[in-house]
């Protein structure tokens, strides 16, 4: 493995029936890099994301995270390796407060057993959890919403809560699935700043995005997919001028 790559995606292929959703895609995310995966609708970006996070099984190929083959791990084990994600269609739990939603991100870190739950011996865990949740909320400036429920907060804040939930376990690789979708200009601006601040803490980021302008503003490197294939990869400035990319986005 080339030194400095935190995530290596090798030749991934995935069929749904007769449709090749992802077709032999390879690329890697370097440590402390913000990498963007872009492409028109149906290009296979989210499918690839779901393969990385173990929700789908690839037909062939390999994904290596820090030297470990991810396909050998169950999806719920990935967070322990240091991979965390957000979802395109917000997956906050309506029955839980913002605080509890974010605390869910720490689920795998809490070591306890049924007996200690029933005897109430996990109070100290809960204090730790609360402290970490509050810290990440201050970091993302959403501490005012801690005790609100998801249906009581604006859409832009929901996205940040999703990011907070992914961030609270202190992952090494953060996967963001269309973080800017549905946000207005101010919210996008705020998100952009937040993403940079996360990156400053040494976290590598792989994000899917639709919005080319957003991507060119925030990423170090871009991979472009179309119809399941990788059609370009490189610096934002290079990729934007690539003939195939323009064709995929604008048509002939």
């Amino acid at each position: 493995m080339e030194k400095g790559d935190i995530l290596k995606i090798k030749n991934i292929t995935k069929h749904f029936g007769g449709v090749k959703a992802v077709d032999g895609v390879s690329f890697s995310v370097r440590e402390r890099q913000i990498k963007a995966l872009v492409g028109p609708n149906g290009a296979g970006k989210t499918t690839l994301f779901n393969i990385v996070t173990g929700l789908y099984k690839a037909d062939s190929g390999e994904i290596i995270f820090k030297g470990k083959n991810l396909f050998l791990y169950k999806p719920y084990k990935l967070i322990n390796l240091g991979i965390s994600r957000t979802f395109q269609n917000i997956q906050l739990i309506d029955a839980l407060t913002v605080k509890e939603n974010i605390a869910l991100g720490l689920h795998s870190k809490i070591k306890s057993n049924p007996v200690s739950i029933i005897l109430g011996l996990n109070k100290s865990h809960e204090r730790d959890v609360l402290e970490k949740v509050e810290r990440v909320c201050r970091f993302l400036k959403i501490e005012d919403y801690l005790y609100k429920y998801p249906n009581q907060i604006p859409f832009g804040i929901k996205r940040l809560v999703e990011i907070a939930r992914a961030l609270v376990s202190e992952p090494e690789l953060l996967l963001l699935d269309e973080p800017a979708a549905g946000l207005n200009e101010d919210e996008t601006e705020l998100l952009l700043k937040s993403i940079f601040r996360i990156w400053e803490r040494g976290i590598s980021i792989l994000l899917i995005e639709h919005d080319m302008e957003f991507v060119t503003n925030c990423s170090h490197s871009i991979v472009v997919m179309d119809s399941g294939k990788k059609i370009a990869e490189g610096l934002p400035s290079e990729v934007m001028n690539d003939y195939r990319v323009i064709k995929a986005y604008m048509g002939e």
């Binding site: 929700l55 967070i79 965390s84 997956q91 689920h107 795998s108 939930r165």
Partner: peptide, 18 residues
């Protein structure tokens, strides 16, 4: 908390180590 997550958003629960 994990149970409520399973109830509503199974994939989210799975992704956060449940």
């Amino acid at each position: 908390r994990a149970l409520k997550a399973i109830h509503e958003k199974e994939l989210a629960a799975l992704s956060f180590g449940v």
